[in-house]
Computed example of a mutant assay.
Amino acid sequence: MKKKFKNLTFKDALFNIANYTVFFLFTLACIFPFYYIFINTISNNDAVQKGMINFIPVGINIRNYLALTSVNDLGVSFVVTVARTVLGTGLMVLASAFIGYLVTKEEMRNRKFWYRFLIITMYFNAGIMPVFLNLSMLGLTDNFMGYIIPSIIAPYNIILVKTYIESIPRELEESALIDGAGYFMVFRKIIWPLSKPILATIAIFGAVNHWNSFIDSLVYMQNAPKLYTLQHRLYVYLNEASNLKDIISSSPNAAAMALNSKVLKYTVTMVTLIPIFIVYPFMQRYFEKGIMLGAVKG
């Protein structure tokens, strides 16, 4: 490491300093909004209301989070969001892996046509109203499966998986076929285990997409409040913070709290962010490897 730095010229050193400084400031700019919201949720509510919390929390407490347990709709929306994230992501990963494997097979009938047809759907779609009418005719509006079925096929993720699978030595598959294994056995025993990095990568994409989903809940679940996602519920709360304040204030668990709309907005926002922050570090080690290897070929 010392030799590496000794060989740097003045211009190189200056470039590195500028480079690290810019990236540090950029990272700080990305992190600070979340930090700002968090310290406002654990600070004294009166101080938050007066705008006194900028960098350091004051009067640390978790009463705001405890108060949200009295809001029944929030718990239901949390369960709906977790359920759609787990089920939707799982089915999407399975479908992406299997379809991505199939389109690598030259013996697949009309392979190029189906692959190009899949890619076209990334750029052209009918629009939100035709999709709504289609889902309505299929009985998927005001239905939990309306979250799951349309999201199973993800063309971009399939392309990533296909590209990754093409980087796996074909000799492994050929040796298994010679030993009598079928395509499904090859997929289950060889392709699936070796594709874990890219599958973890698309799982992150899918989980974040499902967790942050808002439009489909807003448009397709208009008559089913019990199926609102957490982001949709947050939208409702942010627009009706005074009503949420009344709900919490009437709860015996929050009788002594000095509540205000600003604190409630911050707290509900943070509740929607925390789970994805917890999950991401466990998947991050696969993310970089998967996305790089999956993007090597065109």
Rank of each mutant, 00 (worst) to 15 (best):
E106A: 15
I60Y: 13
F38C: 11
P193K: 01
F132H: 04
I99M: 05
L140S: 06
R84H: 03
F113S: 08
G127S: 00
K6D: 13
L28R: 10
A295V: 13
I42W: 01
F214R: 02
G139Y: 10
V219N: 01
F214N: 04
V268K: 05
T163H: 09
L68K: 02
L199Y: 12
D246W: 13
V82I: 06
T201M: 04
F277L: 13
T89P: 00
S77W: 00
F98D: 03
Y286H: 01
M52L: 12
I99F: 05
A256L: 14
A154C: 14
T272H: 07
V22H: 02
S242L: 15
T201S: 05
L118R: 00
L177S: 10
T21W: 08
L87T: 14
F32L: 03
G127K: 02
F78E: 00
F34G: 04
V82E: 06
I190A: 01
M145I: 07
N44I: 00
W211K: 02
K265W: 12
K226L: 04
S136T: 14
E288N: 15
H232T: 12
K289V: 11
G290C: 02
K289D: 05
Y183F: 10
L14A: 10
F205A: 01
I148L: 05
R285Q: 03
N223G: 06
E106D: 15
T121P: 11
F124M: 05
I198G: 04
A255D: 12
K11D: 05
F113C: 07
N212T: 07
N54P: 09
F144H: 08
N72Q: 15
P33T: 07
I149M: 06
L138Y: 07
I247Y: 06
Y220F: 15
K289W: 04
M122K: 03
K196M: 11
L135G: 12
F205D: 01
I128L: 10
V86A: 09
A67C: 03
L102F: 05
V271C: 02
L135F: 15
N125Q: 12
Y20S: 08
A29M: 07
N243S: 13
F24V: 13
G88A: 03
V236T: 13
L68M: 05
T27E: 13
I291E: 03
E173Q: 06
Y101R: 08
K162W: 00
S242D: 07
L138Q: 10
F205W: 07
T267I: 03
K105R: 10
F78N: 06
Y65T: 10
T21P: 04
A176F: 00
R233L: 08
A258W: 12
V48W: 00
S213E: 02
A67H: 10
R170E: 15
L102A: 07
I159C: 06
L66Y: 03
I178Y: 04
I278H: 07
F277E: 02
N7A: 14
P130T: 08
K162D: 04
V263A: 14
F205R: 05
T21V: 04
F55H: 06
I119E: 04
L91Q: 09
G51R: 02
A95V: 09
V263M: 05
Y266L: 11
